[in-house]
Deep mutational scan, measured.
Amino acid sequence: TRVETATETAWISLVTALHLVLGLSAVLGLLLLRWQFPAHYRRLRHALW
């Protein structure tokens, strides 16, 4: 049971790290898009909202 718990903890930390990385890359990508294509971003936002 001790090994299982350790594996579970490792998986949880791995998944958390993955989610953090994905979230950060998504935010960075959005910022980059907004910085590179302001007109396109505004049009996209206008279409979405």
Rank of each mutant, 00 (worst) to 15 (best):
A17N: 05
H46M: 08
R42H: 07
H46A: 15
R43H: 06
S25P: 03
G29R: 04
W49L: 05
R43K: 10
L28G: 03
W49P: 10
T7S: 15
T1K: 08
Q36K: 15
L31Y: 14
A26E: 07
I12Y: 10
T5Y: 06
I12D: 08
L30Q: 00
A39V: 11
W11N: 10
A17Y: 05
L18G: 01
Y41K: 06
E8K: 00
L18H: 00
V27I: 13
L30C: 14
S13A: 15
G23M: 10
S13E: 00
Q36T: 10
V27D: 02
V15I: 12
T9M: 12
L28E: 07
L32K: 01
G23A: 13
L28D: 02
A10W: 07
L20I: 12
L20W: 01
S25A: 14
V15M: 11
R43Q: 11
L22G: 13
L28K: 02
S25E: 00
H46E: 07
T5Q: 04
L14H: 04
E4R: 09
W11P: 01
W11C: 00
H46L: 06
H19T: 15
W49S: 08
S13Y: 09
L18C: 09
R43I: 11
V3C: 04
R45P: 03
P38N: 14
S13F: 15
V27S: 07
Q36C: 10
A26R: 02
L31I: 11
S25F: 01
L18K: 00
A47E: 02
R45W: 07
E4L: 07
L24W: 12
E4K: 12
T9V: 12
W11I: 10
L33Q: 00
E8M: 00
T9N: 07
V21M: 09
Y41D: 05
A17P: 08
L32W: 12
L24F: 12
H40W: 10
H40K: 13
A17R: 03
L22I: 15
S13D: 06
L14W: 04
E8A: 05
T1Y: 11
L31V: 11
P38T: 09
W11S: 00
E4V: 13
L18P: 10
A39Q: 13
L20V: 13
L48G: 01
L48P: 08
W49V: 03
A26M: 13
G23Y: 09
G29Y: 00
L20H: 01
A47M: 10
A6G: 14
Y41N: 00
T16I: 14
H46R: 12
L48Y: 00
A39D: 12
L14M: 11
W35C: 07
H19G: 15
L24A: 13
S25T: 12
Q36L: 11
G29H: 04
L32R: 00
Y41A: 15
L20G: 07
L20N: 05
T16F: 07
T16S: 10
T7N: 14
T5P: 00
T1N: 07
T5C: 06
T5K: 02
A39H: 11
L31H: 06
G23E: 03
V21E: 00
V27W: 06
T1V: 13
R2E: 13
Q36D: 00
T16K: 03
L20P: 05
L14E: 03
R45N: 10
L28I: 04
V15K: 10
E8L: 01
A47N: 08
L28R: 01
A10V: 07
L24K: 01
F37R: 04
V21Q: 02
Q36M: 12
A26P: 02
T7M: 12
S25G: 08
G29E: 03
H19N: 15
L32I: 06
L20K: 02
H46Y: 08
T9F: 07
S25H: 07
R42E: 14
T1C: 09
E4F: 09
R34W: 10
L14T: 00
L32V: 14
L48K: 00
A6Q: 02
I12T: 08
R43A: 10
R42V: 09
A17D: 04
Y41P: 04
H46P: 08
F37A: 07
S25Y: 08
E8I: 05
T7G: 05
T7W: 03
W35I: 14
R43S: 10
W11E: 07
L22C: 13
R45K: 14
R45L: 09
F37I: 01
V3Y: 01
L33H: 01
L33A: 07
T1M: 13
P38G: 10
L44I: 11
W35D: 03
V21L: 15
R2Y: 10
L30E: 05
L20C: 12
T7L: 09
V3N: 06
E4Y: 11
F37G: 05
L32T: 12
E8H: 01
G23W: 00
W49R: 02
V15L: 11
A10D: 06
R42F: 07
T9S: 09
A17K: 07
S25D: 01
R34K: 14
E4G: 08
W35L: 15
A17S: 09
W11F: 13
R45S: 05
H46N: 12
W11M: 07
W35T: 13
